[in-house]
Amino acid sequence: EETYEVDGEEQLKKVEKMLRDRNLDVEVEIHNGKFVIRAK
């Protein structure tokens, strides 16, 4: 499992696309105004 923490939606979209391109399962949560992306 990998976890990424990003600020802002633009970064979120980039990271999310990169992970989905690797066929990973992606979950996004918001913690303290930051996006936390978990990939399995």
Rank of each mutant, 00 (worst) to 15 (best):
residue 1 E to W: 15
residue 1 E to H: 11
residue 1 E to I: 14
residue 1 E to P: 11
residue 2 E to H: 11
residue 2 E to A: 08
residue 2 E to T: 11
residue 2 E to Q: 08
residue 3 T to M: 13
residue 3 T to N: 06
residue 3 T to Q: 09
residue 3 T to L: 13
residue 4 Y to P: 00
residue 4 Y to K: 01
residue 4 Y to G: 01
residue 4 Y to L: 04
residue 4 Y to I: 06
residue 5 E to Y: 14
residue 5 E to K: 08
residue 5 E to W: 14
residue 5 E to P: 03
residue 5 E to F: 13
residue 5 E to T: 13
residue 5 E to I: 15
residue 6 V to N: 03
residue 6 V to L: 08
residue 6 V to R: 03
residue 6 V to Y: 04
residue 7 D to F: 14
residue 7 D to M: 12
residue 7 D to I: 13
residue 7 D to S: 11
residue 7 D to C: 15
residue 7 D to E: 13
residue 8 G to A: 06
residue 8 G to F: 09
residue 8 G to S: 15
residue 8 G to N: 15
residue 9 E to F: 13
residue 9 E to V: 12
residue 9 E to A: 08
residue 9 E to Q: 08
residue 9 E to K: 07
residue 9 E to S: 05
residue 9 E to P: 11
residue 10 E to R: 05
residue 10 E to P: 03
residue 12 L to P: 01
residue 12 L to V: 06
residue 12 L to Y: 09
residue 12 L to T: 00
residue 12 L to N: 02
residue 12 L to D: 01
residue 13 K to A: 12
residue 13 K to G: 06
residue 13 K to V: 08
residue 13 K to P: 01
residue 13 K to Y: 12
residue 13 K to T: 06
residue 13 K to M: 11
residue 14 K to Y: 12
residue 14 K to F: 11
residue 14 K to A: 13
residue 14 K to I: 14
residue 14 K to Q: 11
residue 14 K to N: 07
residue 14 K to W: 13
residue 15 V to Q: 00
residue 15 V to A: 04
residue 15 V to L: 14
residue 15 V to N: 01
residue 15 V to I: 14
residue 15 V to K: 03
residue 16 E to H: 10
residue 16 E to S: 13
residue 16 E to V: 15
residue 16 E to K: 13
residue 16 E to R: 13
residue 17 K to I: 07
residue 17 K to Y: 01
residue 17 K to G: 04
residue 17 K to V: 07
residue 17 K to T: 06
residue 17 K to L: 07
residue 18 M to Y: 12
residue 18 M to W: 15
residue 18 M to T: 04
residue 18 M to F: 13
residue 18 M to G: 01
residue 18 M to R: 04
residue 19 L to T: 00
residue 19 L to D: 01
residue 19 L to K: 00
residue 19 L to R: 00
residue 19 L to M: 05
residue 19 L to Y: 08
residue 20 R to G: 03
residue 20 R to Y: 06
residue 20 R to F: 08
residue 20 R to D: 00
residue 20 R to L: 10
residue 21 D to A: 13
residue 21 D to G: 09
residue 21 D to R: 11
residue 22 R to I: 03
residue 22 R to E: 03
residue 22 R to Y: 06
residue 22 R to H: 05
residue 23 N to M: 08
residue 23 N to L: 09
residue 23 N to S: 08
residue 24 L to R: 04
residue 24 L to Y: 12
residue 24 L to C: 15
residue 24 L to F: 13
residue 24 L to E: 02
residue 25 D to T: 13
residue 25 D to V: 14
residue 25 D to Q: 13
residue 25 D to N: 11
residue 26 V to R: 01
residue 26 V to P: 05
residue 26 V to G: 02
residue 27 E to G: 03
residue 27 E to A: 09
residue 27 E to I: 14
residue 28 V to F: 05
residue 28 V to D: 00
residue 28 V to E: 01
residue 29 E to R: 11
residue 29 E to W: 14
residue 29 E to S: 13
residue 29 E to L: 12
residue 29 E to Q: 09
residue 30 I to M: 10
residue 30 I to D: 07
residue 30 I to K: 07
residue 30 I to Q: 09
residue 30 I to P: 04
residue 31 H to F: 12
residue 31 H to V: 15
residue 31 H to N: 07
residue 31 H to S: 10
residue 32 N to M: 06
residue 32 N to Q: 05
residue 32 N to I: 04
residue 33 G to A: 02
residue 33 G to W: 03
residue 33 G to M: 02
residue 33 G to Q: 00
residue 33 G to S: 01
residue 33 G to Y: 04
residue 34 K to S: 07
residue 34 K to F: 09
residue 34 K to Y: 12
residue 34 K to L: 05
residue 34 K to H: 10
residue 35 F to W: 11
residue 35 F to N: 01
residue 36 V to P: 02
residue 36 V to R: 10
residue 36 V to N: 00
residue 36 V to Q: 04
residue 37 I to M: 01
residue 37 I to E: 01
residue 37 I to W: 03
residue 37 I to N: 00
residue 38 R to P: 00
residue 38 R to N: 03
residue 38 R to C: 10
residue 38 R to A: 00
residue 38 R to Y: 06
residue 38 R to T: 08
residue 39 A to G: 08
residue 39 A to R: 04
residue 39 A to V: 15
residue 39 A to D: 00
residue 39 A to M: 09
residue 39 A to W: 13
residue 39 A to N: 03
residue 40 K to M: 08
residue 40 K to A: 05
residue 40 K to S: 10
residue 40 K to V: 12
residue 40 K to T: 11
residue 40 K to F: 12
